[in-house]
């Protein structure tokens, strides 16, 4: 991260890139790093806080070991995407945005993955599962 900041100079336009890299590296944006980024970019911490909480890509808390994402696009919705989300919430005993008690899964939704023909779509750590049903959710989770 240090390197990335040095490369980018003191410019706000690098902020989103940097946040992407930090998020990718740590799985979240460690809050204690904000001051460091702010100083290097010569912008305020509150500005960074504003940007990172605005975008869905960034999180200030570490997620679970695996991230389960249910697509909530229109095509998935008319094919029962909401039911899949509900069932995931029951199976993992958490709400969307939370991490299961054993720290294994974080449940998220996404607006559309653009794979509308094969919906409802679920991804786990970026691996796509097509035609999700209430029945096959359990077997998807079992893989992890």
């Amino acid at each position: 991260m240090e390197n990335k900041i040095k490369q980018s100079g003191n410019r706000q336009n690098e902020l989103v890139h940097i946040l992407h890299e930090v998020q990718e590296r740590f799985g979240y944006i460690p809050p204690e790093r904000l001051a460091e980024i702010a100083k290097k970019l010569n912008i305020s911490e509150s500005e960074i806080y504003g940007v990172l909480t605005f975008y869905k890509a960034f999180s200030l808390e570490p997620g679970g070991e695996h991230t389960v994402t249910v697509c909530m696009g229109t095509a998935c919705h008319v094919r029962g995407g909401q039911q899949i989300t509900d069932e995931m919430e029951r199976k993992l005993d958490i709400k969307v945005g939370q991490t299961s008690a054993d720290g294994k899964f974080t449940l998220e939704t996404v607006n559309c993955l653009g794979c509308c023909a094969i919906g409802p779509v679920v991804t786990v750590d970026g691996k796509y599962y097509s035609h999700a049903t209430m029945k096959n959710i359990a077997s998807i989770l079992k893989e992890y």
């Binding site: 909530m72 696009g73 229109t74 095509a75 919705h77 607006n111 559309c112 653009g114 794979c115 509308c116």
Partner: peptide, 11 residues
């Protein structure tokens, strides 16, 4: 930034 859910021609 093809955000419309249900559209994926740009992808």
């Amino acid at each position: 930034d093809e955000g419309d859910p249900g559209a994926y021609m740009d992808r």
